[in-house]
């Protein structure tokens, strides 16, 4: 994964590396240098790497892997938190698909959410990041204000605010009424409740935007300027310079966005008061997992749900990394 081979920029109009060569005179070390380095230097590099990795390796062994492995074990048990786990083999895994309609409901809710919210979130954040990357007055203030919704986090005030906007007598319906559109409650209607959660996600687009914005800041100005001098228009510059250089972060945001969306919990938890209602319409996967584990004291079952999700996400990530070789362009390759 970390050594995905060369990715070509999406268009052949302006190749960043050519521009880079133009701008710094083109003195670049030969690529062969790395390959011909001797054994000793390789060993030294490996030792250095492991020295750098010490804190993380300790954390992995001490804090992360133990609880993970233990939860894997729990997924094969019946465990009510209060008494000892009892080995049941694959029973939890089988039950999910044979005897639990709510599980299947939570899968479908989550899939719809992922498919709709992730692309929308990426597009909205990218557009806003481009807009806020211009130099203009009050820029800092604008960025901060656009970011405010993301700062609220899981604040208890969110539930009240969401009812205020999407309730039967909420702001949205008052606004629609101006245009003569009548609509019932959004949060209170099983057909619309998921839409309000997706809106909540999009509302808090700030974090994704900030990552894009930081990436845009990293793009050498010379590249864009050189392209402009070559006569490339704004759109053309975006697709031939900005976009290829942004691919590592687009990749990051898409992958992390998808993982987070599959694990999405807080929005639905806060807005539905932890129930996943109305009528299970916002019963997200991890929300149901939480209900099973902590309220119904079925931690074995919850662990099985979690590990199944891990397996699915691992397969998805592996596939996504494989596609990266076709479209992600890293600066450490050429």
């Amino acid at each position: 994964m970390s050594d995905a081979p060369v990715a070509r920029p999406l268009t052949n109009a302006v190749r960043p590396e050519v521009l880079a060569d133009k701008s710094d005179g083109g003195a670049r070390p030969a690529h062969g240098a790395r390959g011909t380095r001797n054994m000793k230097s390789k060993t030294r590099e490996a030792i250095a790497a492991y020295v750098f990795l010490i804190p993380w390796l300790l954390g992995l062994a001490g804090f992360t892997l133990g609880p993970m492995i233990y939860s894997l074990y729990l997924s094969f048990t019946s465990y009510d938190l209060l008494s000892d786990p009892r080995w049941v083999g694959f029973r939890n895994y089988v039950q999910m698909f044979t005897a639990d309609p709510r599980y299947l409901k939570s899968v479908s809710v989550t899939l719809i959410y992922v498919v709709v919210s992730v692309p929308l979130l990426l597009i909205v954040s990218m557009l806003l990041a481009l807009l806020l990357n211009k130099s203009m007055k009050f820029l800092t203030g604008y960025r901060a204000l656009f970011y405010v919704p993301s700062l609220l986090g899981a604040s208890v005030a969110i539930a009240a605010l969401w009812r205020l906007v999407f309730g039967a007598d909420g702001i949205l319906n008052k606004a629609l009424a101006v245009f003569g559109i009548q609509h019932g409650s959004w949060v209170g209607n099983p057909d619309d409740a998921l839409t309000t959660i997706i809106t909540l996600t999009l509302w808090a687009f700030g974090s994704t935007m900030i990552i894009f914005l930081a990436g845009l800041k990293q793009i050498p100005k010379e590249l864009s300027e050189a392209a402009a001098m070559d006569g490339a228009g704004t759109l053309r510059r975006f697709f031939s310079v900005t976009l290829p250089l942004m691919t590592p972060l687009i990749f990051f945001n898409a992958l992390m966005g998808t993982i987070h969306a599959f694990q999405s919990f807080t929005g639905a938890y806060v807005v539905s008061g932890g129930t996943g209602g109305p009528a299970d319409s916002t019963l997200f996967y991890t929300l149901y997992l939480y209900q099973r584990g902590f309220a119904q004291l079925d931690m074995g079952y919850a662990s099985a749900m979690a590990w199944l999700l891990l397996a699915v996400l691992a397969a998805f990530s592996a596939f996504f990394f494989w596609t990266a070789r076709f479209w992600v362009h890293y600066g450490d390759e050429s």
């Binding site: 992360t64 993970m68 939860s71 694990q263 997992l289 931690m299 919850a302 999700l309």
Partner: peptide, 12 residues
């Protein structure tokens, strides 16, 4: 380590 929902590692 990012793929496992954090809810199940709370207890361990």
């Amino acid at each position: 380590t990012m793929l496992l929902p954090s809810q199940v590692t709370l207890v361990p």
